[in-house]
Amino acid sequence: MTSSTPAVGNAVTVLLYEFPEEYAQLVHKRFPSVRVLTAKDAASLDEQVSQADVLLAHRFPVEIFDKALRLRWFQCASAGIDTILPIRDRIGALIVTNVRGMHGEVIADYVMTGIAMMHWNLPQFLHDQSRKAWHPRALAPLAGQTLGVVGLGSIGTAIARRGKAFGMTVIGSKRDINEPVDGVDKLFPPESVAELLRLSDFVVLAVPHVPETVRLIGREQLRLMRRSAVLVNIARGSAVAESELIEALKAGTIAGAVLDVFEREPLAADSPLWTMSNVIVTPHIAGWMSDYDNRVLEIFNDNLERYLDKTPLRNVVDLNRGY
């Protein structure tokens, strides 16, 4: 058990789970009146969670929820809060916040890199290079191609802006289509996502992990897409029926896929996706920045100041919607 300051009176106690001790020291330096604890592993978390008013962690450890009797606020260090959803009916007045808005630009970098690689068929050029084979080929520019973004939260909106900067026609799907979205030429409600699939050269999934998005893309949806289309998934692996996607990729139902997330992670060594020439596989890194935890700490410290001042927190999650 570690503590930046001894427990005193009614001091707010913050528990950092799976963050280095130096982060606890930084929090305490900014908020000297706050008691800061760190838990490096499940055992120390189990020992200390009963003392915590505030928990900062990359995921919500549901296994210790019954011991977290003092917990009033959980700051999730990721945008997705799906780890808490199984117990959302039990959490009462617990405030849940996330770090949405932090990942948008870097994930947009990833998406546009993947789109450009697939559009130019760079995997094939790299294969040709390895064999010293000279095979020139021409293609249309990305400008004028249609980018379909399913889910226009902070990440999807950043992707849409980047696509528009590439000169693409950008269409998107979101719950409320009454308010325009910067960079999006046409909006579709969720029930009309089929039309978005038909119109898109590149389909990007940027939806949250909620029951409505599980297996959002399967055999039927893939058949609606253009045979020249590419699917990009930076949402959750559960959004795609993986075996049906593999069938479609093998059959040429769609041209290719850029996949950063999978139904099970790490992706199994025997998955056909690893060796398919029309697929780019990455290990869930699209939003993983080199200074990730520092950015999390900036958001957390801002929210902690608001919490101590009893003012509204940033990025409060609506657990009924799941994001």
Results as ranks from 00 to 15, higher is better:
residue 2 T to W: 10
residue 5 T to I: 06
residue 8 V to Y: 04
residue 11 A to Q: 09
residue 11 A to W: 00
residue 14 V to R: 06
residue 16 L to Q: 06
residue 16 L to N: 04
residue 18 E to D: 00
residue 21 E to C: 01
residue 23 Y to D: 06
residue 23 Y to P: 00
residue 24 A to V: 01
residue 26 L to K: 15
residue 27 V to S: 07
residue 28 H to M: 03
residue 29 K to D: 08
residue 31 F to W: 09
residue 32 P to Y: 06
residue 35 R to G: 10
residue 40 K to Y: 11
residue 43 A to V: 01
residue 51 Q to T: 13
residue 52 A to Y: 08
residue 56 L to Y: 06
residue 59 R to M: 04
residue 64 I to N: 10
residue 65 F to H: 15
residue 66 D to Q: 15
residue 69 L to S: 15
residue 76 C to E: 01
residue 79 A to M: 01
residue 82 D to E: 15
residue 84 I to G: 13
residue 85 L to P: 00
residue 85 L to M: 10
residue 86 P to A: 12
residue 89 D to S: 14
residue 89 D to P: 01
residue 90 R to N: 13
residue 90 R to Q: 15
residue 91 I to P: 12
residue 92 G to V: 00
residue 94 L to Y: 05
residue 95 I to F: 07
residue 98 N to L: 00
residue 98 N to M: 02
residue 98 N to D: 06
residue 100 R to H: 11
residue 102 M to W: 07
residue 103 H to P: 01
residue 104 G to D: 04
residue 108 A to Y: 11
residue 109 D to T: 01
residue 110 Y to Q: 03
residue 110 Y to E: 02
residue 115 I to M: 14
residue 115 I to N: 10
residue 118 M to T: 00
residue 119 H to G: 07
residue 122 L to T: 10
residue 123 P to R: 10
residue 124 Q to E: 11
residue 125 F to N: 13
residue 127 H to R: 14
residue 130 S to I: 00
residue 131 R to N: 09
residue 133 A to V: 08
residue 137 R to H: 11
residue 138 A to G: 01
residue 140 A to K: 13
residue 141 P to D: 14
residue 142 L to S: 06
residue 144 G to D: 04
residue 146 T to F: 12
residue 148 G to W: 07
residue 150 V to F: 09
residue 154 S to M: 02
residue 156 G to A: 05
residue 158 A to P: 07
residue 159 I to F: 02
residue 159 I to R: 03
residue 159 I to E: 04
residue 162 R to Q: 11
residue 163 G to T: 04
residue 167 G to V: 07
residue 167 G to C: 06
residue 169 T to S: 11
residue 173 S to M: 14
residue 175 R to C: 07
residue 182 D to T: 11
residue 185 D to H: 05
residue 187 L to M: 05
residue 192 S to C: 14
residue 193 V to I: 15
residue 193 V to R: 15
residue 195 E to D: 14
residue 201 D to N: 13
residue 205 L to Q: 04
residue 206 A to S: 13
residue 206 A to I: 01
residue 208 P to I: 08
residue 210 V to Y: 06
residue 212 E to H: 07
residue 218 G to N: 13
residue 220 E to C: 00
residue 222 L to E: 07
residue 228 S to F: 09
residue 232 V to M: 04
residue 233 N to R: 04
residue 239 A to H: 03
residue 241 A to P: 01
residue 241 A to H: 14
residue 241 A to M: 07
residue 253 T to G: 13
residue 253 T to I: 15
residue 255 A to T: 03
residue 256 G to H: 05
residue 259 L to P: 10
residue 263 E to L: 12
residue 265 E to G: 03
residue 267 L to N: 03
residue 268 A to E: 05
residue 272 P to L: 13
residue 274 W to F: 10
residue 274 W to M: 09
residue 279 V to A: 00
residue 283 P to W: 06
residue 284 H to A: 09
residue 285 I to G: 02
residue 286 A to N: 09
residue 287 G to F: 08
residue 288 W to E: 14
residue 289 M to L: 13
residue 296 V to Y: 12
residue 298 E to Q: 12
residue 299 I to S: 11
residue 302 D to V: 13
residue 308 L to S: 05
residue 310 K to F: 00
residue 312 P to A: 05
residue 313 L to R: 08
residue 314 R to V: 04
residue 317 V to N: 08
residue 318 D to A: 14
residue 321 R to M: 08
residue 321 R to S: 08
